[in-house]
Design a binder for these strands. Structure first.
Lengths: 210, 210
DNA sequence: TTTAGTTTTTACCATACGGTAAACGAAATT
DNA sequence: AATTTCGTTTACCGTATGGTAAAAACTAAA
């Protein structure tokens, strides 16, 4: 039963697709889905638009693939590590560090995500509902348990997450503003260290942990 | 010396322009400059594209006016109130509340600003350098003075601002995600109160104020 | 009522866009 | 060597886009 479709993608093809996806991520990161053109992606990837269309038959397809790759990275770091033993302070410290590393290493991914959410998450909505929300509620419940156990002060877990997400992602999404105000051409490890230090300190003191 | 150009805009015209600017803000908030079309703005404002062009002769013109109106709102709340007497705790409390009110009352303005900054602030760059940076450095210096005076713990003032900005603006820019996760169709006053409470607590405890 | 000025509509236009069709060349399978 | 598959280029198409030109409709002062 030999099929005509989808035999086996050659390594060369996979490499080319990966190159295109990287280029597309960069383009979508700048102007979002509607603001980006296939021509722009093609140029960034170093091939013709028609050739790009050979690899990704439509802009929607391309965008969905970019988003999918981003989410694979993202979702993991959006949720706490599954370690029932871990104490609040260490868990949160690692969480903040992980999110900041994501902003440092994948700023374009963060910006594509930001574009999506800013205009109402038209594509991601269902995914966020089915995948992110359960994690979010599980982690919120865990924080509430900490409160019940007297390990931290009574605070609103949900808003704690919003604050941490915003403060860590801003180093990717708003990097241009931050660079401008710090007078730097790019953010350095030192900046991320300072951010981690301040944020961790604020959160831990704010919730009365440790 | 009667001139042919720019006599006096009639009240009706000013009203129409204001309506267009509101509509444009909403459209730009969703998809940014490149992703928005004049047709979309026209439809949102309830007139024809050609008629829209009569009021704003180009998309650039329109975008610049929208940004200008936003900045008039924005810059004020980005900086501390000019009160040399005020103690750190009360100043920061008021600052956070003010920024959150901005997110609550002008979410679209915040989102237009976010789009701009995410793709590198191509239009705003110079303005931010000449207007925001001085305020930012003045306020940072003031926080350093608090540290020198032993009023708060030694922290990095710059990153403190980044954290507050991100955490407050997220309630406008990422409202769709927050709503989704909270299971609400829109954010209510209660949510902003909780955000203000948690954020203020975290910042004040984090910097060791009061 | 005329007239000058202001809006709105109608008719276009060049370019950019996403996408199709097919020809063509390069590999690889037989 | 012949043939199939894969990759790339060339040519093209309908629509959307930002914008122009000018006629037509409306408004208000003389």
């Amino acid at each position: 039963m030999t099929e005509k479709t989808s035999r086996k993608p050659s390594p060369a093809r996979l490499r080319q697709e990966a190159r295109i996806l990287r280029a597309a991520e960069k383009v979508f990161a700048g102007k979002g889905f509607s603001g980006s053109s296939m021509d722009a992606v093609a140029e960034a990837a170093g091939l013709s638009k028609q050739n790009l269309i050979y690899y990704f038959p439509s802009k929607e397809t391309l965008y969905h693939r970019v988003l999918q790759d981003i989410l694979d990275l993202w979702m993991e770091k959006m949720a706490f590590i599954e370690d029932p033993q871990a104490e609040p302070a260490e868990l949160i410290t690692a969480y903040i560090r992980g999110k900041l590393e994501l902003s440092r290493d994948y700023p374009d991914a963060s910006r594509v995500f930001a574009h999506e959410v800013i205009n109402g998450a038209p594509v991601l909505k269902n995914y966020l509902l089915s995948h992110l929300k359960p994690l979010f509620e599980r982690d919120s419940a865990r924080v509430r348990q900490w409160i019940a156990d007297g390990k931290i002060d009574p605070i609103e877990p949900e808003h704690l997450f919003f604050c941490i997400w915003a403060s860590t992602q801003t180093y990717a999404d708003f990097a241009s503003q931050i660079q401008l105000l710090l007078g730097k051409t790019k953010l350095e490890q030192e900046d991320f260290d300072k951010a981690a230090s301040l944020l961790t300190r604020m959160v831990l003191n704010g919730i009365g942990a440790k």
